[in-house]
Every structure is written in C-alpha cells, then in structure tokens.
Amino acid sequence: MTVYCLVELDAGTVADASLRALTMARGLASARGADVAAVVFGEAASVPVAELAAYGVMNAYAVAVDGYAPQAWARAIAELPNLAGSLGEGASSWVKTDTGLAVLTHDHEGEAGPAVLAAGTDHGNEVLAHVGAIAGLPVAANCVAAAPAPGGGLELVRQRWAGLLLEDAVLDAPVALLTVATDAVAAVPADSPGPVTVHEVKPELSAGDLVVRAEEAPAAAGGASLATARVVVGGGRGVGSADGFAPLEELASLLGGVVGVSRVVTSEGWRPHAQQVGQTGTKITPDLYLACGISGAIQHIAGCAGARHIVAINTDPAAPMMARADYALIGDLHQVLPALIEALRAR
C-alpha cells in the first residue's frame, strides 16, 4: 500500500526536512513493495516535479487549500482518494470501558496498510497530530527508522527527550502515521528516478476545519530562519552581554548565516528566544555550527547534534562542547572573533 509523504516547500523547492522524510518514506515503501506519493499544498504548477522524481516519488497530489490551516490540511490528507476509507472520521471504533476511558480498537489481519509520513517540523507534527485525532489513530512523532514488523505493523525507532534518548517501539494501526526527525535521517536521492504524475485535489472542507488558519507576515527578525540556515554562529554565556553579540552578527553575515544562542543568553534577555538552540528552542541542521562561549550542556546538544560540522571556541578546553566539536579553538572569543573577522575580510 502506498506510503504518502507530506512535502513542505521552502521558496518553491522541497524543504530539507521533507527530503529527509521522503527518504524514509521511500525506504519504508520499498521494504513493503509499495510506492511513494507526495502530498503538496498548493497549485499543481507549484509542485517541484523534478525534485520529487529524484526522491523516488511516483504520484504527487497537489491539494488546493488557501494558506496554512492545520486542521484543513489534515482533513484533506485524511480524505485523499485511497486513504479516505481507512482514515476518515469513525474509521476506527472506540470502546468505552467502565472507567469511562476511550480505547481504540481496529481489526486488521496483519497486512500492511498505507502509511502517512511528514517531517518532524512544527507544521508536520501539527498536521499529523490532527490526522491522528480525526481518525482516532496513534501518531509516532520524530522517528529515525521504520521497518515492517514480522506479523504486521511497523518497528520504529523514535526520539525522546529531544533526541537524547531513542525508543524502540511497535506501531500497530490500520494506517501508520509518523513524523521523521529533522536532524537524524540523511536526505538521499533515489537510484532510479521515474516520472511523476500530478493529481489535483480539491478537498471538501467544513467551516470548522478552517477556523484556525495562519495570517502570515515576514518575521520581525527578517533574516534567514535558524532551523534551515547553512551556517549558524552560536553564542553562549561567554559572550557576556547583549552588546557582545556584535562580532557574532558580523561573522554570521560574512558567512551567510545566522546567530543562534544558548538558553542562558535568552533568559538573560540578551537575545530573543527565537534564536535559542536546544531542547526547548530550535533544532538546527547547518553545515557548520560555530559555537562560541557555549559549554555544551546536554539540552543544548539536543538542538545542535544534527549539525554536519561543529567548531567550538572556548576558554575552557574541558568544556563538553570542545569534545563534541570536530575542531576546537582554545581561547577568548572576544579576541578570536575580531581577528577571525579581520582575516576573512582580508581574503
């Protein structure tokens, strides 16, 4: 049965997190002898067909919903032609126990049903949670691996504690709903891309599905977003003050990146929380994370473990971030950063 994947677009191309989700979707599909279908919200003309083909997609559903409305997106997915039977409202039955608790039951004979995947982004997790709530089915958030289990269902590995722990789990449901960790699965194109057929879908939505919809505006900070930046210059307590961030900003703009910070920095009020990297901030997946004056607490690592390369600058050679990094420079960031900026400008 088909493995569907919600594909988010970033300035017209497939978002990095969705490429990772597509990679897992393809792995799961080939293990089950199934095909991959992409679900894209937008006009048929906006579907990035070549990119989807490169990731092994055979069918793409272009769903016409105006803007971001999570419940409407979920409803549209639940009512895709081949999913409606197994995902529509009331597809599974609830049993009231004597304690008043609703328990899910369904009968399936061990055959593999369809699956719906999405990236473990704010949108992906949100939309799939709505699908799960509409259909009364479980959702496994932030998976890093999925494979058919002997006897039906899926064997999963998913992140807990923002990735500090992994959970081995079994998912037993008529439709498997999962999101894919944004920092743990690599995006790998398919060996043999084929043609993609695009289907236009106009979902029937109730007024209730559209009550909650996003009014969108460019974010105040304006710049590139932390979650998708290719270079992040990180600053921690070692930066010392709000003013101390000037060289980090300058370096970030020289490298075409953005500034990210530790929780100490946001709770001191030096920088807005939107720039926090970590368990309760943003997860980043840059090519380079340049961590300056950050000790590398476990909750900070939860946010930057997906960086391809880490360079740490710290006065303390024993700071955990220095061991975690690929390259470590022992020194005072207040001296090193101006010298680095000067050297880069002189190139």
Binding site: L165, L166, A312, I330, G331, V336
Partner: peptide, 28 residues
C-alpha cells in the same frame, strides 16, 4: 494503545575526538 514502547536506549555517540586548532588568535 497502538504505539507501544519496547525499550529505551541512549544513542551511541560515534567515537570522536576534536582536532585542537590551537590557542587564541595564533590559531586564527
């Protein structure tokens, strides 16, 4: 529920040592 935990584990961080570039501005 339909999603059931079997076990938890701590991810193994790959064997890894940082390359030390040196001290202070001399390492720039």
């Amino acid at each position: 529920e339909g999603l059931r935990m079997r076990t938890l584990r701590v991810p193994v961080a790959g064997q890894h040592t940082a390359t030390v570039l040196g001290h202070g501005v001399d390492a720039v």
